[in-house]
Nucleic acid binder design. Structure first.
Length: 590
RNA sequence: GAUCCCGUAGCUCAGUUGGAUAGAGCAACUGCCUUCUAAGCAGUAGGCCAUUGGUUCGAAUCCAAUCGGGAUCACCA
């Protein structure tokens, strides 16, 4: 509709004033609440060419459109704006079309293939709040891109080798005494994470004398015995020592087992996992190939570097002087492998904004290597999650643990539900299912409603709300509608409704429902789930207003009942779709 | 020091490619459940859109400078 208005306005300006205007240049907005109308055209841009007052130009254009477009019921001019009010017949027709389209909100296939990497945990400690944001954003963006017609493949990357897991291994070797997750009753990832924290404790103790001598923290850590063991493990691993590999496999296995439970709880899945341990060699080969081609340089100590000083960045190490790989080495290998696996049109990396620099380097390095997929790389960066006292620090154990937080949310949902006395008539299984839907809904909505690029403040003291601009608010609207649909006896899926006039509140809902496809395309273009979250809220709010002011089932005219149930059903469908894009489930009752 | 991000109500955030009187939620205060679920609805109050200057019919939005906050610039990942 916006496009039609744009085109007609351009025609109007051309015919009335003899000035060519591109249709895209015409500004069409939704009419703000306090004015009458549905769409508003800004006419200031034409005033000069017309040599008339803004009011006159507005009237001219308004007249022109009203005679050409039957959907225009009326128009009014305020200062430099023409507000067009569209006919109820138009909105009814729009509604019937939307209601009849099962695929409403699903765009046609674009043929674009996207590989989206997310989660990307290290295997030395459990998942935390930052990972939750990563998982939710990645999962949601993938769903949104699919809805926008792209073919999306979700993949995960495990940073399963290197110095960090070696630290957990070293601490376990020294202090573990053969303990296992089973024997200790701990979840696998928490178990291994415990030894990572223990490593830091031991290292800090052992480093103290060196710090007293005036060494910097990092230097002092390198002097410690436990660090020596860690490095030994790391070198032996790369040398292929069977005992070290065995220990490494066992400890990683524990971690994967633990991660799996968390993924399942959050409804997160991926199609394929990549492992640093399986890609670093390929990365090293590619780097050495680059050295042979002369695009990288080798220092006398044997380390290999890429020089990005022409691109305003520094020189970066690609292979250490001892021949071992660094973080970026594996990413080069992973990118290459992934490209060969999928032949994608785009490679998206959902990774925190602290790594913006890293991805710039990665992209430029691959460009220097002449890789065809270098331009396909897109770093979808999201902001860190802050606690009131600042950044989370996992090495100090100052983190909000993912599993703890999820458990807490479910408990809060249960408390709320019981307090409101809403468990009546539910069996235990239904009830616990509901707590899960609501608790996770609250958590996911909380994390996705703010723009992913922004930093997010999380205060564990203030529990996540269940009222207002929240997931449960939207879910509640859905549950209410479902309740009405259960009570209504009749067919509301009529192709036509014998109505001629719309109540303003009814029209508001049709207008909101109509926005879903546009919302999805904006969200897809900006990789931003918060657009969808805000849409769901706005739709629910619009419906709640009608619900409070008008009756849906108890009208004198049965046609009104039928139509309003149809409106409600369509609202519920859109809510369900929007929440689905956020990875949030909807309850039949709550 | 260099590069990048961010400053909107007491708090957490929206605010389309520059458009009309800057919007929600939380917290505070008022009302509304003998009709479809009150996890709701209606209302009151709360703003020098960090500051200054510029661009123009028009700026929270674009540009510049300043102030404040953050991230990154590891032979960590």
């Amino acid at each position: 509709m916006e496009k039609i208005l744009q085109q007609l306005c351009a025609n109007a300006v051309h015919e009335l004033y003899g000035v060519e205007v591109a249709a895209e240049q015409v500004i069409v907005n939704e009419t703000p609440k306090d004015f009458t109308g549905d769409y508003t055209v800004v006419i200031f841009p034409f005033v000069k060419a017309a040599r008339k007052s803004p009011e006159q130009v507005g009237n001219d254009i308004g007249q022109f459109l009203q005679t050409r477009l039957e959907e225009v019921a009326s128009f009014n001019v305020v200062k430099g704006f023409v507000n067009f009010e569209l006919s109820d017949a138009f909105w009814l027709k729009t509604f019937v079309e939307m209601a009849g389209n099962d695929q409403f909100g699903q765009a046609n296939p674009t043929g674009k293939k996207i590989v989206l990497e997310y989660i990307g945990p290290n295997t030395n400690k459990p998942l935390h709040l930052g990972h939750i944001r990563n998982m939710l954003v990645g999962h949601s963006v993938a769903a949104i891109l699919s809805a926008n017609g792209h073919e999306v493949h979700k993949v995960n990357i495990y940073n399963d080798k290197g110095i960090n897991i070696s630290k957990s291994m070293a601490a376990w070797k020294l202090e573990g005494k053969g303990e296992t997750p089973q024997s200790s009753g701990k979840k696998g990832d928490h178990f291994v994470g415990y030894y990572y924290v223990l490593y830091n404790k031991i290292a800090t103790e052992q480093a103290a004398p060196f710090i007293a001598m005036g060494m910097k923290d990092r230097e002092a850590e390198k002097q410690t015995a436990i660090y020596a063991l860690t490095e030994q493990f790391n070198r032996d691993w790369e040398a292929g020592s069977p005992e070290v590999l065995e220990l490494w496999r066992i400890m990683n296995g524990w971690v994967y087992q633990g991660f799996k439970e968390t993924y399942r709880m959050l409804g997160i899945e991926y199609e394929k996992a990549y492992y640093e341990s399986e890609c670093y060699q390929l990365g090293k080969d590619l780097v050495i190939g680059g050295l042979d081609k002369g695009v990288f340089l080798k220092q006398p100590d044997g380390s290999i570097w890429v020089d990005l000083s022409d691109e305003q960045l520094d020189q970066k190490v690609l292979i250490r002087s001892d021949g071992t790989s660094v973080y970026i080495t594996q990413d080069i290998g992973v990118a290459d492998l992934r490209y060969r696996d999928f032949k994608p049109d785009q490679l998206i990396y959902v990774v925190g904004d602290e790594q913006i620099y890293h991805f710039k380097v990665l992209k430029l390095t691959l460009e220097k290597l002449g890789m065809p997929y270098a331009p396909l790389i897109y770093h979808l960066s999201y902001g860190m999650v802050d606690l009131p006292e600042g950044k989370m620090k996992s090495r100090e154990g100052k983190v909000v643990d993912a599993d703890d937080l999820i458990a807490e949310m479910l408990q809060t949902a249960e408390d709320h539900t019981k307090e409101l006395g809403k468990t009546e008539g539910m069996n235990a299984e239904e009830a616990s299912q509901l707590y899960k839907i609501l608790g996770l809904g609250a958590l996911k909505y909380f994390m996705l409603k703010v723009n992913a690029q922004k930093r997010l403040l999380f205060n564990p003291q203030e529990s996540i709300d269940f009222q207002g601009h929240t997931g449960p608010f939207v879910q509640y609207t859905y549950a209410r509608i479902r309740s009405i649909m259960r009570k209504f006896e009749g067919d509301y899926q009529l192709p036509n409704f014998p109505l001629t006039a719309l109540h303003p509140l009814e029209k508001n809902i049709i207008v909101e429902i109509n926005k879903l496809p546009h919302t999805i395309s904006v969200a897809a273009e900006t990789y931003d789930p918060s657009v969808v979250a805000n849409y769901a809220f706005s739709l629910a709010k619009t419906f709640n207003k009608l619900y409070a002011e008008l009756s849906i089932l108890n009208n004198e005219n049965p046609a009104t009942n039928t139509f309003r149930v149809a409106l409600a059903a369509m609202t519920a469908r859109n809510i369900e779709k929007a929440l689905h894009l956020l990875g949030i489930d909807v309850p039949e009752r709550m």
